[in-house]
């Protein structure tokens, strides 16, 4: 399979009050084109830091990342147009309507006006927000914001979608809707990269799952293999087996 993301010896060290904290410690992996790739791990495992480096938001201390062949440090401006990011913080302008938020993102991604309007209408129908498009997003529920936030990330038809904690705090109906959307995008050939705390989500959605713990990648495999290798009945057991029972800060 053709890798679309190549991570080699990736390390990120932060300075906090004069102390060096290694958030990500020498990890290497590939993400293949067209797969749904999950990153799971307890708090402080380094998922979010890895996510931020993959999405060009922060620079690695050591190692390299190539996204679609482009180096994240030197060619971040080539990477941003081909990736879509759904942040955990839904980050919509509350005093703009749903449609205005989408238009803003479409414009920032340079989507031609007519195409942008067609896509906005299409996606609003797809996520069942058509009737609310002209309301201020400040009055939206969490589920509505998550659905709108997803559209913001795909209006420019990215090759890769990064999705940080996609269903945290959502009701089962919205969670199912988000999963359907993810599968739809993947069916269209897009590569999806998730971080999640929900093992059920990783088990249901992901082709492969990377398990992170204390800045290291402790396992990378298909969910079924992870369960089999650890002799676990479900992914949560496999996860505990790999990362331990200790509660993290």
């Amino acid at each position: 399979m053709e890798p679309i993301i190549e991570v080699r010896n990736l390390t990120k060290v932060f300075l906090s009050r004069g102390r060096k904290i290694t958030a990500v410690n020498d990890i290497s992996f590939d993400v293949f084109k067209g797969e749904i790739f999950g990153m799971i791990g307890p708090n402080g495992a380094g998922k979010s830091t890895t996510f931020s480096m993959l999405t060009t938001l922060i620079k690695p201390t050591n190692g390299s990342i190539k996204v679609a062949g482009f180096d994240v440090e030197k060619e971040d401006d080539r990477i941003r147009p081909i990736i879509g990011i759904v942040p955990q913080k839904l980050s919509l302008y509350p005093d703009l309507t749903g449609r205005e938020n989408l238009e803003l993102m479409g414009k920032l991604y340079d989507v031609p006006k007519k195409l942008m309007e067609e896509r906005i209408d299409y996606y609003l129908r797809l996520v069942d927000l058509e009737a609310h498009a002209d309301r201020f997003t400040g009055g939206f529920s969490g589920g509505m914001k998550q659905r709108l936030s997803v559209i913001c990330a795909v209006l420019h038809d990215p090759e890769i979608i990064f999705w940080d904690e996609p269903t945290t705090g959502l009701d089962p109906q919205t969670r199912q809707a988000i999963w359907r959307l993810a599968k739809k995008f993947n069916g269209e050939g897009k590569t999806l990269i998730f971080t999640t705390h929900y093992m059920e989500e990783a088990d249901n959605l992901c082709d492969r799952v990377a398990v992170m713990n204390l800045g290291k990648m402790v396992a990378l495999d298909e969910p079924a293999s992870l369960k089999e290798k650890s002799g676990s009945a479900n992914l949560e057991e496999a996860f505990i087996h790999l990362t331990g029972e200790e509660v993290r800060d």
Binding site: P87, K89, S91, P94
Partner: peptide, 14 residues
Amino acid sequence: EDGTIIRILMTPVS
């Protein structure tokens, strides 16, 4: 605070 500026900076805009 609300994360909107980060969302803007995730786009190709410098």
